[in-house]
Design a protein around this nucleic acid. Structure first.
Ligand code: MN
Ligand code: MN
Ligand code: ZN
Ligand code: ZN
Lengths: 138, 138
DNA sequence: ATCTTTTTGCAACAAAGTTGCATGCTAGTT
DNA sequence: AACTAGCATGCAACTTTGTTGCAAAAAGAT
C-alpha cells in the first residue's frame, strides 16, 4: 500500500508529502466515493482544511481522482483508473448512489451508454448516475 | 404568460405571491436551467436571498422544477414537464451542459437509457448528463 | 371588512470555499 | 551529509453560500 501510494504520486510528478499520502490512502481504502467533508473527518485535526482543498484540486488536475455529479450540492471524488492522466480521463463508468446509506459507488464495469442527441449538439463526455438501494441496504 | 403562471401556482395549491410569480416567470422565459445565483442576479434587490431559497425549495417539493446534477458544486434547476407532481417526477430526460457558454439545457426528447447493473443493486432513478458544445458554441 | 394562515424579510448564525503570505518541507545538487 | 531552490503547508482573514427563529406583512377564506 505504502509503495503503491508513493508510486502514484511519483508517476504524477508530485512530491510525496504527509497529507497527500494520507488522503490518497483514504481513497485506496474506501470502497466508495468521498466528499471533502468525509476526508476532513477521517483525517481529524491532522491537516488544515485548506490543505485538503488544495490536495483534492491537485489530484483532480493530475487525473488521480475524478469528480462525480450529484443532485444535491455535494461534490464527490473517487479514484480514477490507471489509464487516466492530466486532462485525459477515461472514467466513463456509471455511478451508483444509495438513497438509504448515502454511499456512492463507482460501477467500473458498467459503461455509460451513448445516446443520440438532437442535431447541433456536439457531445464530449457522457455521465450517468443511478440512484437506488445498494447491496447492503435493499 | 401571466395567466399561465397563476395557473401553475393554483394547480399546486400555492398562494400567488410576487416572488413566486417572478421566479416562475424567469424559468418560463429561460431556455436553460437556472442556478440559485442566476435567480438572485436577475431579480436584483427585489427579494430577500432567503425567499429565493425557500421558493426554490417549495417548487422542488411540488414538482414544478427539478434539480440537475453537476460535477462542480452548483445546483441547477429547470421546469418540469406537465405530468410531474408532488413526489412523482417524470423528468427522465438527458441534460446537456455546454462546456463553452456554460448553459444547461433539458433535452426533453432524449430519454435516459437504462443500463444493466451488477446483481444486488436496486435502481430507482437514472440520470444522465452530457457535456459538450451546444448549437451556438460549436 | 375581519380573521386565519401562509409567506416574507431581517438578523444572526453556520458551513463551505478562497486568497495572500510567512514558514516548513521535499527533492535534487554539491 | 549539508545546502538550496522550489513547492507545499498552516494560519489568518475573508467571501460566498446556505440555514434558522421570529416578528411583520400579505394572501386567501369567511
Ligand atoms: Mn467513478
Ligand atoms: Mn430537465
Ligand atoms: Zn446503501
Ligand atoms: Zn454553449
Amino acid at each position: 500500500m505504502e509503495a503503491q501510494i508513493d508510486e502514484i504520486l511519483r508517476k504524477n510528478q508530485l512530491s510525496v508529502t504527509g497529507s497527500r499520502k494520507r488522503i490518497l490512502e483514504l481513497f485506496l481504502m474506501s470502497n466508495g466515493a468521498l466528499a471533502h467533508g468525509d476526508i476532513e473527518k477521517k483525517t481529524g485535526e491532522k491537516f488544515d482544511r485548506v490543505t485538503v482543498y488544495r490536495t483534492l484540486q491537485t489530484f483532480l488536475e493530475k487525473g488521480i481522482i475524478h469528480s462525480i455529479p450529484t443532485s444535491d450540492n455535494s461534490v464527490l471524488y473517487a479514484l480514477c483508473k490507471d489509464d487516466c492522466s492530466e486532462g485525459h480521463h477515461h472514467d466513463n463508468h456509471v455511478h451508483f448512489i444509495c438513497s438509504d446509506c448515502g454511499k456512492t459507488i463507482c460501477l467500473a464495469d458498467v459503461t455509460v451508454p451513448q445516446v443520440k442527441l438532437p442535431v447541433g449538439f456536439l457531445p464530449q463526455e457522457y455521465q450517468m448516475v443511478v440512484t437506488g438501494l445498494c447491496k447492503d441496504c435493499r
